[in-house]
Each structure stands twice: as C-alpha cells, then as structure tokens.
Design a protein around this nucleic acid. Structure first.
Lengths: 348, 348
DNA sequence: GACTGTATAGAAAGCGCTTGCTGCGTTGCT
DNA sequence: AGCAACGCAGCAAGCGCTTTCTATACAGTC
C-alpha cells in the first residue's frame, strides 16, 4: 500500500541503507547512485515515515512552541518569528523541521501536558513564550520537565519569560519592570499624580514585573499609592473595559490609567469614552507591547514597544543551534517607550 | 538511560504487552494488574516514546492546523478554537493529542511542505484554514496531497476555505461573497454611489469572493463601477493605509471605502484621518471579519462578523470524529452584518 | 606486482512499541 | 461432574528506518 524505503531501494537497485543515506545526506554516496535514488523517490512519490525515522535515529524534527494564547497577536508575532527561523535548512533530512505551536491557554496543567507530549515526541527543541505562572509547585514541575527534556537532548529556550532556576534553559527575558517604570515616569513627568493601574492576572510574572516597575516609578517620585488605584484582570480588552469602570467608580479624580497591555488599554479607552471623558484631555492612557493596532487607536496609544519579532527570531535561531546563546544563558530584552497621542498633560 | 516499556513491565512484573494495553486502555486488563502497572509507570516516571508507538500502531496523535498568518488574530482565533476541541479525550493513549499550528505565511510552497511534513508524521488529522491560492497547478498539488493524506487515514477538514474538488475533505466555507454583498448593500442603502474597494492579494479565493459580492451589490443597484475604485494589497493595516491614499489620489470624490478585512480598514481609517477627512461624515469605512479590536476603533467599525471560533470548534470536532460532517461534506458558514459607527450617510 | 588506502555499497542488528494469536485458569451451563 | 466459554496475560513478529560494521573495487605507492 504505502511506499517504503525498501520499495525505493528496489526500484533504484540499491540497498535500503543507501537510500537512507541519500535522503539524509550525511554520508558519501556516488553522484550517479544518488541521482538514481532521487529519481526513484520521485517516481514512487515516496514520503519518509517520520515516526520510523525518529525511532531509529532517536531524534525528531519537531520543534515545539508553547504560547499562552494563540489568538493574541503578542504570541502570534513571536510564534511567527520563531517559525520563520525554524523552517529553513539546518538539520537532517532535507533540513525541514516541523514547528508546532501549542496553545496552553495560560493553564499550568496544559503547559505540563504539552511539555510531556513534546517529550514523548522526542522534540528537537522547545520554546516557551510569555510569562510564567508564579506557583511554586508548578514552577518546580515545569523546571523538572525542562531538565528532563534537556537530558533527552531537546534544546530548551525561553522567550519573553523569566529564567527557570536549576535549569540550563536559555532565557531571553523581557524587561517588563524597566518598561513599566519608564512608562509611568513619562506620565509623572507630564504632571500626573493620581494614576490608576490595570494589572493582569495576579499569578503571572509579567503582571508582577510590570506592576513593580510602575510602583518603583511612583516611589521614586515620592507619590504615595492609593490601594484603590490598582485593579487586576485578564489580559484582554474586556478586562480593561471593566477595570476602568471600576477604577472610575473608586476614584473619579484619576488623571491617568496605565494598562497591563495594549488590548487592555483599548478596553480602557472605550470605557473612558463611554463615561464621557476625553483622552488625553481628561484622562491619559498607556498600554504595553505596542502591538500593530496600537498606532491606529484614536488617539494612538502611548506604550512600550517590545521587540517581539526580533526576540522570537533570536530564540528560534538559538533553538536551532544557529546562534550562540547569550553568556550565562540569560539575556534581557529591553522595551522602548513610544510616546503617542493617548498621553498628555493632566487637566488642571 | 531512558526508561522504556520493558522497564516498566519488569518493575510491574508483567509483560510489555500488558503495559502497552494498560496505557492504551483498549483491551481488558484486570484492575489489580492495571494498578500495579500504573504505579510502576509513576515510580519510573515513564513517558511513552511517541515515534515508536506511532510506528508500531501506524497512527499518531498529531493534528495539524495550517494557517496563513499566525500573527493575525483571524487565524489565531480559529486555531485557538480548534485546539480547544482537540486537546480533550477522544482517542488512544489517554486521549491526549498534540495540536500543532503550522504557519504557511500564505506561501503555496510552504503549504505543501507542511502537508508533506504532516503526511510524514502520519498525522491523525489536518485542518486547513483560510482562503486558498487560486493557482491551478498548486491547487492540483494540494488536492493530490489531501487525497494521499486521506488514503493514509488522516482526516482532512477545511475551515473557512472553499471545498477542494476531487477530494473528500470536509469543508466549512465562509460565505464571503454573501457577506461582501450585504456590506455593500448597506452602504448603497445609506446613499453611497462612489465606493472605493481595497481588495486583498489577487490570487486568493477570499479576495475574489468578497470582491464579487461587492460588485454584485453594485450591479444590483445599477451602479457602474469605475476601475479606478479597486486597489489590491495585502491583508494588513499598512496595505490599507497605502491603498487608501492611492484611492484618494485616483478619485477624491469617493464617499465610502470598503476594505478587504478589519486590519485593512484600520489602515484606511488612519489614512483618511491624516488626509483630513472625517469618518463617517466625509467618508464611510467598512471592514470584514469583526475581529475583537474592531469594536474599539473610533468610530467603531461597520463590518461583517464571521463566527471564527464557532467554525473552528466545529472543524475541530469533525476532525476528531466527534461530530458528523455536514451532508455532502460541505457547509456554508454565513457572516452577519454589524452596522456601527464608521458608516453613515454620504456628504451632500 | 604486491600492499596499503580510500571511496562506496551492503548486511544486519536493532530503535521501542503494538497486536494477532496462543494458552491457561476460572466461571457458567446442562 | 464434564464441557464450553470466557477473561486475562504472554509470546513473538513485525512497523520502517538508521547505522555500525564489513566487503568490495579501485587507485596510488614503492
């Protein structure tokens, strides 16, 4: 029924071993023989059996990418950049690798499940993107998995995620704290003194780091923070909308709202507008990430640009062994403050 | 080094066959034996070797999802919905399946490459999302691949993509033509007579269908279309921005701009604003898809909502054999016109 | 011309798992 | 009590490929 290596070998009048070597190209095969084999492959429309070859060679050409939310461009952009670096040549069997994106939905269990699945597939590399969950047992479980993966020869890279202790996973970490600080500093410079903050889910590292940056800026400016000024929610538009209404209810005198990310900021803008407030005349708004749509918001969003595509590409190259990991296995990727229309001088 | 089935068997004092059957759960095993095996699995921290099991069983638990652009929420939302239906139980080996998203970047070659890779992995199912490329040889090549995949037992489902002739792939097709027609009818009803159209890349089915719907509406209203009113571009914000400037240059009297999708529409809005035109007072704008950010645009975008998540979920269930395919293997998924702030009565 | 070295191809032993078939002990039936 | 039927576990034969080791055929060397 299905064509196998042996069929190709028979047709090309060589041994299966030779066909395998032609296909993997890491062993001298005479040009004429190679040609004959290739022709046979073509004529029979032969497709290598991946599992069989993975079993025999004890490696596979699968590369796993874990994302928290595939519907969120934040992850989509990174995943896209990673895939761009993975598809190309650089390995065995024609160099084609299958980059697979796995959507954890932010759930710790699914994260572990996917890691197990990738371990089961003997993945060539695994790249984890986005913030981690701050839960000690879970973090330990993940670290243990990562260690096992590494032991089995799988390269592990973290992209936009804090380093995993007791692991030799390479980490490209976003400087969320620094970015958050810069952003709030900018607002303080404009004259804001009463700033609301819409944070992400409490248990995520990204959330904590951005919030810490924000608070550091407040502290440095001698502004005492009112606990009512912080609301937690998910990283989406709707959460931003609701959180903003809540913030307004708690303290109608706020002159600025800093959002956990751009989607949240968009929701915040909607809520402010519906409440009859002008942006930035009445309330300034700031986001984080600088996703493509942020520049099109009205007014365009002041935010912190994270080089998602660059970081993803780099992570991809490191995972493929085409770029040296940073010294110590850890690199910090900084964001860049983008001052745009949504932030301005506070009303008198 | 690595733990194998045999190790588990030895530890549990049973044969490897029994361990395998416990793990796959499709053969009667006495409860006490099962328990003993499970304990051994746990103690040894055993992880099944995917390739080996795929080889022996001639099937794998991989499900491939092909998308044109993973950074575009249009695809992200579908992929997310599909994965949601795939992760759960419903098969062998604990029912866990690895849903993998492959980013073709819209390139026909990469599409074929990924299909081959999935064929090579003996994927359990493959789901192709988004429009197809209208190129006869390529379409034939894809159809041939799909046929081979189906022959090998891989279930093939198309989601938001036209049916593939000579294939028994199940197709959930978006009614792009109908949606486009409705949208333009709406604008015509408002009184618009000079409508610019920013189409997607020429070779995509989605592009053609939406454009056909637009033209059908024009024709039905007896409006003769000026060839200058149509510009082609990519499905992104930037293309919309540039195309709009071009349209304005060609005919400054246009009172409406219909965009190929929401991202394009956002770019169009930006261009219009920069040109000093008010939306919708001077020019109305319409998009397509109704992505989450569209409602937050200012003014919010009139568009056609496509039930991406629902369609994706359904495609996922069909791919997993948990839902009956539609009669004839083809179903049309309709969009819904969402009239919002970006469309209005044309200026006098 | 005998000997060593090099280039290329083949034989065969698995890789770790699944599964058809066989075998045995036990229960159900008459 | 005797026989059939059944439930459960093991044996062993692969699944299709990779790779080590071996064999052959030359070309080069003194």
């Amino acid at each position: 029924m299905t064509v196998t290596l042996a069929d190709v070998a028979a047709r090309a009048q060589v041994s299966p071993a030779t066909v395998s070597r032609v296909l993997n190209g890491n062993y001298p095969v005479a040009a004429t023989t190679r040609e004959r084999v290739l022709r046979a492959v073509d004529e029979l429309d032969y497709v290598l059996n991946g599992p069989a070859s993975a079993l025999a060679a004890a490696t596979s050409d699968l590369v796993g990418i874990l994302v928290n939310d595939i519907a969120d461009p934040f992850f989509g952009i990174m995943a896209s950049a990673i895939q761009g670096e993975i598809g190309g040549p650089g390995g065995r069997a024609g160099g084609e690798r299958l980059a697979v994106t796995c959507n954890t939905g932010g759930s710790p269990e699914r994260e572990l499940t996917y890691l197990t699945l990738l371990q089961r597939q003997r993945a060539a590399a695994v790249i984890l993107t986005g913030g981690a969950v701050e839960n000690v047992p879970h973090a330990a479980a993940v670290a243990a998995k990562l260690r096992k993966l590494a032991d089995a020869g799988t390269r592990v890279v973290l992209c936009g995620r804090p380093p995993a202790p007791d692991t030799d996973a390479v980490a490209l970490t976003f400087d969320n704290r620094g970015g958050g600080k810069q952003l709030t500093e900018h607002l303080i410079e404009l004259g804001h003194r009463r700033l609301g903050y819409i944070a992400g889910p409490e248990e995520r590292t990204t959330t904590r780091h951005r919030l810490e940056g924000h608070r550091a800026a407040l502290a440095a400016a001698g502004i005492e923070e009112d606990p009512r000024w912080t609301v937690h929610g998910r990283y989406d538009r709707r959460a931003g909308y609701e959180a903003t209404l809540e913030l307004l209810r708690r303290d109608p005198t706020l002159t600025a709202v800093v959002a956990a990310n751009d989607s949240v900021a968009l929701g915040a803008c909607a809520a402010l507008r519906e409440s009859g407030l002008r942006i930035p005349a009445d309330v300034s708004v700031a986001g984080f990430d600088d996703l493509p749509f942020s520049i099109d918001a009205v007014p365009s969003l002041t935010t912190v640009r994270l080089p998602l595509a660059e970081a993803g590409a780099r992570a991809g190259r490191i995972a493929m062994g085409r770029e040296e990991p940073p010294p110590g296995g850890i690199a910090t990727v900084r964001g860049e403050l983008m001052v745009r229309g949504s932030s301005g001088v506070p009303r008198a």
